[in-house]
Structure formats: structure tokens, C-alpha cells
Design a protein around this nucleic acid. Structure first.
Lengths: 160, 160
DNA sequence: TCCATTATGTTGGCTGGCCAAGTAATGAGC
DNA sequence: GCTCATTACTTGGCCAGCCAACATAATGGA
């Protein structure tokens, strides 16, 4: 019961939100970490004129070059409608351009503009900073272990 | 300046064989796991008439009883506007009710309705299922290690 | 050749979540 | 009492992301 002495004070010696067993130990932790992570990324990216999530699309284009939207959807594992709108906004922002696919009139080819290309270094720097900040204080062994465990979780959660 | 060098001071000894480390090893993993986790939770909750995120608010109310909105904001670490709308929707769904705080005419007291209370067991079961599914195949030691590492990440990311 | 199936993308509608700006009530200081 | 900062909450606007329904185009089979 949280009713016991919620009166702030000095008792907060351990972790701030000391939340003993309330069912979803790891689940809660994942959710909290992920939100903080996304928020941090969002703040860093906003100075570049991007919103969290958009940088992943740009990164794919930088790495793999012009692609059809369907390819981006597969790679990013997003809903088609999400990518459609993201592409629309990035196009309006002048960072990417769309053109018809020669040979498949259904498809849309997406590619970066010079302005989009110009962001590459900064965005990659943001991600390096973010990663560094995220795993600060962890040993190499810790990082490897964390990657291993997260991979297991991802397999668990994408299986069904 | 950052030229073409692989950057990063720490040696990337772990083979970047298949998935070339594009900067955010852990960052990417966190993002992917969290999205899968949230999506899974969303699917499970939808059968109960809830959206991902709403269950956390309900859980707080179940555990701590009627509360002012400002308290929920602090506990959930959400933006005030987010909570306002979440509360509006949950009220419209008949799961919670709002009433004026006696003694502070600014504040709003939020409490569960019988319909909201009736969801408690099912939602808690969903979270148990979700947790079980998330950490399936991990040993007790793995789970403890994962919790420890995630706590460190959270501290890193909420520090700034 | 024609038709059903599949692939590609779009729009509408709904949510969580944030920021910025604004209203109303409280409380501290003078 | 009066002023002013703080607190509590709301609204408008914007984004990511999902589902459902849709129109178009390519493909495969009869």
C-alpha cells in the first residue's frame, strides 16, 4: 500500500519510483525506458526539424538509396498509412521527394533531396549521442548482455 | 569532419556481421522491443475496450483510489494535456467519473465507476500474460539482470 | 481474353503523446 | 485588502501509429 508515509522527506534513499512487485516488472520498465528514450530523441531531433520516428525513414533512404514506399514499410515495420503520411510531411518539409516508379504505375519511388542529404551527418551524430547517453555507465559486458536480452524479448513479442 | 571513420571509441569487437551496427545498437533494440510490446498490449487490451496507455491510469486508480488529476500526472509522468484527454475519453466510456474537489475548486477528483472496477481483474490478467510472454525463456537471473540494466537506462535518460 | 486475386498506396477516423497558450483558483508577500 | 507568482486544468495544434475501407494497377489462372 502506497499509503505508508508518502510524505516525501528523506526516505527516498533508493530509486525514486521504488515500485516493488506489481506484476509487470519488466513490462513497466520497458515502457518507461522507451518513452524516455523517445522523448530524448525527439528533443535532439527537433533542433534539426525532425520528429521522432522520421529519422528512421531518412536513415533507410541514406543507407539504401531511393526506394519504393512498400520497401520502407517492410523495413520499418510500420503501417502503410503511417508511412504515407510520414512521406507526405517529409516531402512538404523538402527533405525527400517522390516520383513515379517506371514500370509499376502503382508504386512510388522515394528519395532524399539535397536538403535531406544535408541532414545526414547531424542525425547520425544525434543517434550516436543518444546511444552513448543511453548506455552510459554500462560496461561492455553489460551492453552485450542487454543486447542479448532485448533480442530475446523482441523474439518473444514478435512471435505471436 | 566526422569523415568516414567508424567512430565510437569503444571497440565494436562483437561482430557486426549480419546487422551492421548503424550507431544505435541498444537504441534500436529498445525502440523495436517497446513498439512490439505496446502493440501486443494494445491488442490484448482492445478486447476489454481499452487502448494502450489507458490501463496504466486505471491501475493507478485501482491501487490508490480516487485522486486528483495532478496526482495522476505526477505518477504517470505524463503531460497534463494528455491526462486531461485520457480522462475525458475514459469518462465518456463510462469507466471513470470526475467530480469537483471539495476545498480546491481548481482540482478535479477522478475515481473509477463500477464499470471501471469491473475491468480490474481482466486488465491485471492481461498484464500478467504480457509480462510472462515478454520474459518467456529468460532465467530468473536474466530477468533480474534485465531489470537492473533497464533501471540504469532509465536513470540515464531521465537525468537530463 | 476475361476475371478474380494480389500488391500498392491513399484517406478518414481514432488513440497516445507532446508543446504552447490560455483560464481560473490558490496562496504567499506586502 | 491587494497584487502577483504558482498551481491545476483546458484547448488548439501538431506528430506517430494503428485499423478499416477504398481505388488503382499488376498478375495469375481458366
Amino acid at each position: 500500500m502506497p499509503g505508508t508515509a508518502p510524505q516525501s522527506g528523506t526516505a527516498a534513499s533508493p530509486a525514486p519510483s521504488a515500485r516493488p512487485a506489481c506484476g509487470g516488472q519488466v513490462s513497466h520498465a520497458i515502457a518507461r525506458v522507451a518513452r524516455a528514450h523517445r522523448t530524448t530523441a525527439g528533443h535532439l531531433l527537433r533542433r534539426l526539424g525532425l520528429y521522432a520516428g522520421q529519422e528512421l525513414l531518412m536513415m533507410r533512404l541514406w543507407e539504401a538509396g531511393p526506394q519504393r514506399q512498400s520497401e520502407l514499410i517492410k523495413l520499418l515495420e510500420l503501417d502503410p498509412s503511417t508511412v504515407t503520411r510520414m512521406v507526405q510531411r517529409l516531402e512538404q518539409a523538402g527533405l525527400i521527394s517522390r516520383c513515379a516508379h517506371p514500370g509499376d504505375r502503382r508504386a512510388v519511388l522515394v528519395e532524399t533531396t539535397p536538403a535531406g542529404e544535408a541532414l545526414r551527418e547531424e542525425v547520425e551524430q544525434v543517434w550516436r549521442d543518444l546511444e552513448e547517453r543511453t548506455v552510459a555507465g554500462l560496461t561492455e559486458a553489460d551492453r552485450a548482455e542487454l543486447s542479448r536480452l532485448l533480442s530475446l524479448l523482441e523474439r518473444n513479442l514478435t512471435a505471436g
